[in-house]
Amino acid sequence: MESITKNRQSPEALRAMVERAYGTDRVPAGDGWASELGHGWFNVAYRIRLRDGAEVVLKIAPPPQVEVMTYERGAMSTELATLELLRTHTSVPVPTVDFADQSHELCDADYFFMPYVDADNLGIIAETLPTVDRDAYMEQVGAANREINSLRGAAFGPLAGPGDPSWRRVFTGMFEDVLRDGERRSVDIGWDYDTVRAVLAEHAGTLDEVTEPRLVEWDLWDSNVMVRDGKLVCVIDHERAFYGDPLIEAGFTGSQLAAFGDPAAFMRGYGQGELTATQQVRRNLYGLYLMLIMVIETVFRAHADTTQYDWARPKLDEAMASLGRTRR
């Protein structure tokens, strides 16, 4: 996915970054040692073959002059903190961090190196798999997501704080940040922004049911899962984590928005039964939040075509309808 948030670097800069991370004797020589991993939507990532043949991945945050959405600020710091939490407190397989640099001396943004994971991206191969195999993988994803959500936080909100004991206040604030981002860039969401605010206000009481902050991955789509030989071998991309309601997780999205696929296998692996009426309303709110982001981010990322916008806009209407608002 092409986006102006991708902070591409010259071969000379990449070599300098490799030298700082791994030492002079491992700096690649010649050509063909670096290739961009193109399926990401936000950060740029390179697959790099070191001089000794070892393969690593370099992930670089967006350039500082590119405006990102409010919730995306400091995303790489969030990812590093999340990786540390998951490595030390769960059995969920995640990348190790070989080296991280936030000095901005060699590059104008944060970056880190991790080993290359020799496995298939589930999001890429999912449609080629028999249903039984795909479902088996998604059950594993559900189980892993439940373990991630088992980690408790001191308060709701960003990992780095500030926290708040009220999930209603935190989610309302997250929602408002997205709306203000859209208004600031005059993004056409197909609705009056205050109408969307009113929908959230009408249903915000359901958020009070959530009283225990849990670590939420929020970006655990199949495209962030690496698999091999029937096993989940690594979960990647952790920059959107926060302490919140586990029902906001990506794997539940299809329960309210059919375009995101049948969530049955994920929910089975997670151990989640049928949602209660209140949980369904919360899921509708979370679906609306996601669709607002997917529409508004197309402007922030200066997409070269309207494919994502054209896909997401009708889904935003669907999310509004699930909360009682339809076009007349």
Rank of each mutant, 00 (worst) to 15 (best):
G32C: 01
W33E: 12
W33C: 02
W33H: 01
A34Y: 03
A34V: 00
S35A: 13
S35M: 11
E36H: 04
E36D: 09
E36K: 04
L37N: 08
H39I: 15
G40D: 11
G40S: 13
G40K: 12
N43K: 05
N43E: 02
N43F: 00
V44R: 01
V44I: 06
A45E: 04
R51G: 03
D52I: 03
G53F: 03
G53T: 05
A54R: 04
E55D: 00
E55M: 01
V57M: 05
V57C: 06
V57G: 08
L58E: 01
L58D: 02
L58F: 01
L58C: 07
I60A: 10
P62C: 11
P63D: 15
P64E: 08
V66Y: 02
V68G: 05
M69E: 13
R73A: 06
G74L: 07
A75C: 14
M76N: 04
L80G: 04
T82L: 03
L83E: 08
L85V: 10
L86H: 08
T88Q: 14
S91K: 15
P95Q: 06
P95T: 03
P95A: 05
D101E: 12
D101P: 04
S103C: 10
S103T: 15
E105R: 15
C107A: 13
C107R: 10
D110A: 15
D110K: 10
Y111I: 08
P115M: 04
Y116R: 10
V117D: 13
N121D: 12
N121M: 11
N121E: 14
L122V: 04
I124R: 13
I124P: 03
I125E: 04
I125D: 07
I125R: 11
I125F: 07
A126V: 15
A126F: 11
T128A: 10
T128E: 07
L129E: 13
P130D: 07
T131C: 05
D133M: 11
D135C: 10
M138A: 12
E139S: 04
